[in-house]
Amino acid sequence: MVRSIVHTAALIASLAFVADARAEGLAPYEITGDGIVDSLTGVPGDAARGRALVLTRTTTCILCHSGPFPETRFQGDLAPDLTGAGNRWTVSQLRLRMVDASRFNPDTIMPSYYRADGLVRVGRNFADKPILSAAEIEDIVAFLATLRD
């Protein structure tokens, strides 16, 4: 209940068409309701590649999350286990969460993976770049959608 109110408030602010692609190189995307309906690349992602990406440390997901990944002990517990994420969220919601989780919860510690502005003291090698590319996000979204109990 509380969650859905926060949800709604955050979303009202963002209901309008968002051309959040101000930073150069970011594909424009449109937020509809509480998600992004269309693939950022125009084509569906690859779930197998997405799984490999989620498990790569440099992608940072498993620093915080755990999930159905028996092959690695190095999983975080700062965030919900990803098992069943595909039941809890639609593809459209997963895509918006990856692009900008702060739209669901302004205080979240989950980084916005497809954003390159509004950040402080970004390291030289990372400046003006999103953490992940549009194609990587699509692969991860495709993988998350397969996480069903």
């Binding site: 510690i109 980084p111 950040l119 402080v120 390291g123």
Partner: peptide
Amino acid sequence: MQREGQLNLACTNCHDDNFEKRLAGS
């Protein structure tokens, strides 16, 4: 308290709010 960097995290996010937790297992 200031969030910073590409990951947009502040010292406080880890060291005040999450010190009982594990980051990638540590």
